[in-house]
Nucleic acid binder design. Structure first.
Lengths: 188, 188
DNA sequence: GGCCTGATGTCAGTTCCTGACATGAACCTT
DNA sequence: AAGGTTCATGTCAGGAACTGACATCAGGCC
């Protein structure tokens, strides 16, 4: 057995989500989170750059799956086809996580600082997606527009999925949103 | 003459932009900004909710013009037509502000916290736009998708405009981006 | 003249976050 | 097995962001 309890990072994430759920983000101090995880405040900041980041881990299965799907997507001249493949991978990630996603979303939605962090994380994903498209030969501004559109589709479908108590398949919702986007932009 | 110098808020905004340009956002304290404006730190926080907000005033001509255009846009069944009208108003706002926009953009781009704030402000604009479309009878998810697409078009065109030393007309760039968006989504 | 208003100042305190240094079990080397 | 190294964690001190409570005082109002 190691000197320290294993998975300090995971314990901090769990402690944080539990405390934020109970009392809200602002009403919880970093020292409390660390204490609940059997650690000190200073150690918290060795694992996370700031208090909010504990809810948005850099290395998480969503981002990993996203990057992998983006890399492995077949080459095609149609940027939205690549976007669609990546969105499928994202949908797969959320499979079986509806309850957890809702609890987490409640915490984030209740706090402006956390909504801000979520917003920039989505922007970062859009930028990754645009970069991936450029590497596949898609020119600007098509690459950025396709990437931003993809994130918009995700946002809309994800919000719909979260709102449903008996959720339909996120992949289906995304494909519907993608079709709706085509209608909206194409008809204008 | 009043007891205090007029336009405390404006003086704080000017002092902040000047100092941030000289030394960067992180290297400037709120006390310094206030001092340069002939005020105290506490007064700064009476005008702005936090340090970043001094660069993103709530009541500014961009938001005002945006809201006005959204309200006055003619009714139409085509959401992207409404979006287009609003984008024209936004383009008009930036007329003659190329140099200022570039200086300001340099400050924001250099700092993660400021990029975060900018990101959430754009999300808020998208939400306003979606709400405006809903009020005009556009159903979900079309309203949200049209709004997010509009913001994506703005982002792309604005970035292009900022990058040009001899800037073309932002309205033209936006219309081109809108056409490119149609191509990208429609062809998929 | 006296009272009220409202922007500002003063002050104390909490929390976030960081740098510098200390600790000690696990591991490696010889 | 002795001794040195590694590295996650602890301890401590401090700066800066932000907030609540109360004081000040010019200008307007009765």
């Amino acid at each position: 057995m190691g000197r320290w309890e294993p998975n300090a990072r995971g314990r901090l994430e769990e402690a944080a989500l539990a405390l934020f759920t109970e009392r809200g983000f602002e009403q919880v101090t970093v020292a409390e989170i660390a204490g609940r995880a059997g650690l000190t405040e200073r150690t918290f900041y060795r694992h996370f750059a700031d208090k909010r980041e504990v809810l948005f881990p850099d290395a998480n299965p969503l981002v990993t799956g996203f990057d992998k799907a983006l890399e492995e997507a077949p080459d095609t001249a149609e940027p939205m086809a690549t976007v669609s493949v990546v969105l499928d991978a994202v949908a797969a990630f959320f499979e079986g996580r509806h309850d957890y996603s809702r609890r987490r979303h409640a915490v984030v939605a209740a706090n402006a600082e956390l909504r801000e962090r979520e917003s920039i994380k989505l922007s970062t994903l859009a930028e990754s997606l645009a970069e991936g498209l450029r590497k596949r030969g898609v020119a600007e501004p098509a690459a950025s527009l396709a990437a931003e559109s993809g994130v918009a589709v995700f946002k809309v479908a994800h919000a719909q999925w979260l709102a449903e108590s008996e959720p339909r398949d996120l992949g289906v919702l995304m494909r519907e949103a993608l079709a709706a986007l085509r209608d909206v932009t194409g008809a204008g």
